[in-house]
């Protein structure tokens, strides 16, 4: 094991180039090289054995192909030495592969204590990232060269947070907290996928990872957080509509999606599933956000998640203002 240690240290000292290869996307996290060099190592092993097998196969076919005057020659039908060689060499190789796989995995899953913590909520089919100051955004913003820990859970089914450029992936399981961490090495914008199948829009459950240059992140968070002050209620409501996932299920152009359109609902009378009907006023909308199941709109499933405890009163007010603006009632 000792020399394995040394070897691995040598290898982890690999240059951390970011350029993508034929196999791998750009490499922009501190742990990515664990994945990449092991990938290349296994690739080398595989290519070697694959060629060994196929080349021998082809040679034998050519050399011993059945033809006039060619007979199968006698040769022993078993050979202990051979059997042992081709069991033990692969065995040794897989032990090495296993060891480095596990070692890399430990580094990839144990986050530094001083990491900056961001809360991740997955729900069909959008992400919300809650920053320490309580601000929520639908994209993952992070400082460069600073470890970030993600503490993740899901509101409905299992999702999985996957950032190819960071080589990280971790499931979001309802009723449990899972963690992932990364330290971005390059500012820029990278894709964040949902990797665990979660229904209709699984393939659109995509967010952006925006890695800010040194110092920029704090500035961004600063002015993003107090959008309620900086923006007009209507603008703020529209922003919330976008970042809190309403967009996923509600159109503002009159077309019905998973949920009814929000165009002109304010003040408009809604038919409810239980046969009754109600005028959509401030209180009703507030209720619809906090306890969606309380009054379900006729013709829709009660699938809207509750925002109970995940949305501030000022924000609800902003949303209401925005919905009003959609109905032309300021």
């Amino acid at each position: 094991m000792m020399d394995l240690q040394i070897a691995s240290n040598l290898l982890s000292a690999l240059p951390e180039g970011t350029e993508p290869s034929m196999w791998m996307p750009p490499r922009v996290s501190t742990v990515a090289h664990h994945v990449d060099w092991l990938f290349n190592f296994i690739l080398a092993v595989s290519v070697f054995f694959f060629l060994l097998i196929v080349v021998l196969m082809v040679l034998f076919v050519i050399r011993y192909r059945r033809r006039e005057g060619h007979q199968a020659e006698d040769s022993p039908s078993h050979n202990m030495a051979l059997e042992l060689t081709w069991s033990l060499i692969p065995l040794a190789l897989v032990v090495v592969i296993f060891f480095f796989g596990f070692k890399g995995f430990l580094d990839m899953t144990t986050s530094p204590a001083n990491a900056y913590e961001i809360l991740v909520d997955g729900q069909k089919w959008n992400w919300s990232f809650t920053y320490p100051n309580g601000y929520v955004d639908s994209n993952l913003h992070a400082p460069v060269q600073r470890p970030v820990r993600l503490v993740m859970t899901s509101a409905d089914v299992i999702h999985s947070l996957y950032v190819p450029a960071f080589r990280i992936k971790s499931d979001l399981v309802p009723g449990r907290y899972s963690k992932a961490w990364f330290e971005a090495t390059e500012p820029g914008q990278y894709e964040l996928f949902c990797a665990e199948y979660c229904g209709t829009s699984h393939s659109d459950m995509i967010a952006q990872v925006i890695v800010h240059p040194p110092g920029e992140f704090e500035k961004w968070l600063e002015q993003a957080s107090n959008f309620l002050e900086t923006m007009t209620p209507v603008e703020a409501g529209f922003k919330l509509y976008q970042v809190r996932g309403c967009q996923q299920c509600h159109s503002v152009d009159g077309s019905a999606k998973t949920g009814p359109t929000l165009l002109g609902i304010f003040g408009h009378t809604q038919a409810l599933a239980d046969g009754g009907s109600i005028v959509a006023d401030e209180n009703y909308i507030r209720e619809s956000i906090l306890e969606p199941a309380a009054r379900v709109v006729a013709g829709y499933e009660p699938v809207m998640p509750t925002y109970q405890g995940r949305i501030k009163d000022e924000e609800i007010t902003a949303i209401i203002e925005y919905l009003k603006s959609l109905s032309g009632t300021e």
Binding site: L119, P132, T153, P174, G175, Y177, G309
Partner: peptide, 24 residues
């Protein structure tokens, strides 16, 4: 409590334990 920050304290062991009881 799921969304509020304070629950994150309970998260470390939540992850170690692997197959542990549901938190929410």
């Amino acid at each position: 409590s799921a969304a509020s920050g304070e629950t994150t304290e309970s998260s470390p062991e939540a992850v170690q334990e692997g197959l542990e009881r549901s938190k929410i």
